[in-house]
Design a protein around this nucleic acid. Structure first.
Lengths: 144, 144
DNA sequence: TAAAAGCCTACTAAATCAATAGATTATAAA
DNA sequence: TTTATAATCTATTGATTTAGTAGGCTTTTA
């Protein structure tokens, strides 16, 4: 399961994608609209800024805004950044690989083989899930 | 990520599938062969017994054995049992559903929509990953 | 009847999660 | 140039989960 932090991050990003190219949005506004604790959100947005997904402006009229286009930010990036590995075991992870102590032979491990398929399918879907796509889908669903 | 407990459970089950129809296997044997702490494994196997995947025999010559066929036990069942939800958010879970406090409208949530696809793909693969299939795959990989 | 082997209850140390507090720094407008 | 605004940084904290451990109890079979 995703951590609350990661869920908050996604909601905040979708909100900022809705306000793309409309100038900075204050933490407080996002916090209120998305029901996220202000101080917690502060830390999350800072992390997204360090990852160069967001940028910020201080002082009056300041706030956060997307530096990447909504079509260039996807859930795979965000989840890896906030929660770490997407694979179900470290020995199956692409970005956070760690060898499996139990396995005698990683090459012939049947569990690993199954979980590699899960990983690849998951990555494929998450990579396609851009902020732009999420917004588009929301509008589609709202019309019905 | 899966918990260690869940990883241990899967390894133990694969081991028992290898010894299917060969009488009870003692906890100690599985613990040693799979490098799992004895007492921890005890608790895990008990849980699998309560879920009617395993059965046990007490006393000398006792131990654990599969009651289901290796082709009837899959990773979806085991993961749900040990780690709970497979979906990435509670509001997307089939077996552990919990409503999302942040969303105004769950029906039109674009995040939910993406994660529902991830869930379905993951379930599809995990359900196909039976103990029988894992064993078969290990033999295949070993031959190469 | 004694040894073997699983069963059950309780406890604990360490890590992670979900925040909160408070002081600091940068910016813009008055 | 001051003041209000808003992000930044450091640090601490309580709750929960994870990954076990300890120890006695019960059942079975040789």
């Amino acid at each position: 399961m995703l951590s609350k932090k990661c869920k908050y991050a996604i909601h905040a990003l979708v909100y900022l994608a809705e306000h793309y190219d409309q100038g900075p949005v204050q933490i407080e506004e996002i916090a209120k609209k998305q029901h996220i604790p202000h101080k917690f959100l502060e830390a999350i947005l800072l992390e997204l800024r360090h990852a160069e997904i967001l940028e910020s402006k201080k002082g009056k009229g300041g706030g956060y805004f997307l530096v990447k286009k909504p079509s260039e930010v996807n859930l795979m990036q965000v989840m890896r950044l906030i929660d770490g590995p997407i694979a179900l075991l470290p020995c199956v992870s692409l970005n956070f690989y760690d060898r499996c102590e139990e396995c005698k032979n990683e090459k012939t491990c049947g569990i690993r083989d199954s979980l590699t398929i899960v990983r690849d399918e998951t990555l494929r879907v998450l990579e396609q899930s851009t902020l732009a796509r999420i917004l588009r889908r929301e509008k589609q669903l709202a019309q019905k």
